[in-house]
Simulated assay, not measured.
Amino acid sequence: MSDSFSPTPLIDTPIAFVDLETTGGSVAEHRITEIGVVQVDQGGVSRWSTLVNPEQPIPAFIQSLTGITDDMVRDAPTFASFAAELFERLDGNLFIAHNASFDRGFLRGEFQRVGLTFNPDVLCTVKLSRALWPHEKRHGLDALIERHALEPLARHRALADADLLWQFWQRLHGAWAPEVLRTHIDRTMRRYRIAGDITEDIIDAAPAGHGVYAFFDASDAPLYVGRSVRVRQRVRAHLTGERRSARELRIAEQVRRVQWRDTGGEVGALLTEAKWIGTLRPVHNRQPRIGRTEALAAPWPFQTAIVFEERGQDSACESVFHVVDRWCYLGAVQTLEAARALAAAPSEPIFEPMTFRILQTHLARGLRVTPLGQQEAVDAEAREVSPSV
């Protein structure tokens, strides 16, 4: 197939089709033995490959599979010796690979060992093939060779397999209408470079369940505070989702940092969101307008601070203990001991209108709380409290 094919009618960045051979399947334990890259941009197609000294023995069955032996890599360069050159070559390219998480994971691990952060946007040809041909059962590289009449120069060698992906890419553009192919590419691609220093890996560390998140701009000024029952999913949608409002697009363009807090449940998320909005005063949140006179009709119905526990939907999640005193949300901690210490800290709680409104509603619904005034009360079983407020 001709290399003169225009590669990027649907992609506005250069593309790198990448394949690796390794000593095994574990990023932590194994190393790369060969790298093959087919780069495609408006200037044409270029190919680059090298054997790599893994600095560890290659298992016999992998030598048999790939044909790469210990003797072949003994005098090959180590990854560290060409890491900077390879990083520059791949930087800014859409990274396309078969079972892309494997290849990206190994390269990311190797780059980390030499102090480089590798977070390209990634398109997996296995996932793309499944999306385009959902009724087919097999989507391995051998299946693609057979189904699309690809022409292998070899198998289980890095550059030859990377070239097969380039051939597959060309076949796609002949088999599907541009708008259909664009849709499936957009849905399949994982965008690891998002905004500022935010990457997909960072977002993956966000809570899967209830919590609160905040966005900050380049000067670290607060932009927006939100809450969600699925924080990780919501943050990702804010920054990379297709169906974003004009307001969300404006916010996403400014975001350079994100922080979050796991609240364990809905009430903690409501209280934390209100606290962060009141403290940070982000420019894209409306400040609540609730008069202090509301509190005069309902004095604090307890003699001490209170604590209530929330646990995420996943039973493996740790409990979160929320502490409130005189309609002031003091914060969330991980243990009852820490809750006692937080309540006992010398401070004068300041009435928070939103905390009053949120807690008033949920106490009326039977929120289970425990007074924190005395040791006996702390250790007692939490009871339902439904004061008339």
Rank of each mutant, 00 (worst) to 15 (best):
A246Y: 01
A246F: 04
A246T: 05
L249T: 10
R250Y: 01
R250P: 00
A252L: 00
E253N: 14
E253L: 11
Q254M: 15
Q254W: 13
Q254I: 14
R256N: 14
R256G: 13
R257I: 10
R257N: 11
V258P: 05
V258D: 03
Q259D: 14
Q259I: 14
W260G: 03
D262V: 01
T263Y: 06
G264F: 13
G264Y: 06
G264R: 10
G265C: 11
G265D: 08
E266N: 13
G268A: 07
A269C: 07
L270F: 04
L271F: 04
L271S: 02
T272G: 06
E273F: 02
A274L: 04
K275I: 01
K275P: 00
W276Y: 12
W276C: 02
W276K: 02
W276P: 05
G278S: 14
G278P: 07
G278Y: 07
G278E: 12
G278Q: 08
T279K: 10
T279Q: 11
L280I: 11
L280H: 06
L280V: 12
R281G: 03
P282M: 07
V283R: 14
H284V: 11
H284C: 07
N285M: 07
N285K: 01
N285L: 05
R286T: 15
R286L: 15
Q287K: 08
Q287C: 08
P288A: 15
P288K: 09
P288G: 10
P288L: 11
P288I: 12
R289D: 11
I290N: 09
I290F: 14
G291E: 06
R292D: 14
R292K: 15
E294K: 12
L296S: 13
L296I: 14
A298L: 10
P299R: 00
W300L: 07
W300E: 00
P301Q: 00
T304D: 12
A305T: 00
A305P: 06
I306S: 05
I306P: 07
I306A: 03
F308E: 04
E310Q: 12
E310V: 02
R311V: 07
G312N: 06
Q313S: 15
Q313C: 09
D314H: 07
A316S: 14
C317N: 15
E318Y: 04
E318D: 10
E318H: 09
S319I: 09
V320Y: 03
F321C: 05
H322L: 11
V323Y: 00
V324H: 01
V324N: 01
D325L: 10
R326S: 09
W327R: 04
W327K: 01
C328D: 07
Y329G: 11
Y329C: 01
G331R: 11
G331P: 12
G331E: 12
A332E: 06
V333I: 02
V333S: 04
T335V: 08
A338N: 13
R340I: 15
R340V: 14
R340P: 06
A341N: 13
A341L: 15
A341H: 14
A341I: 12
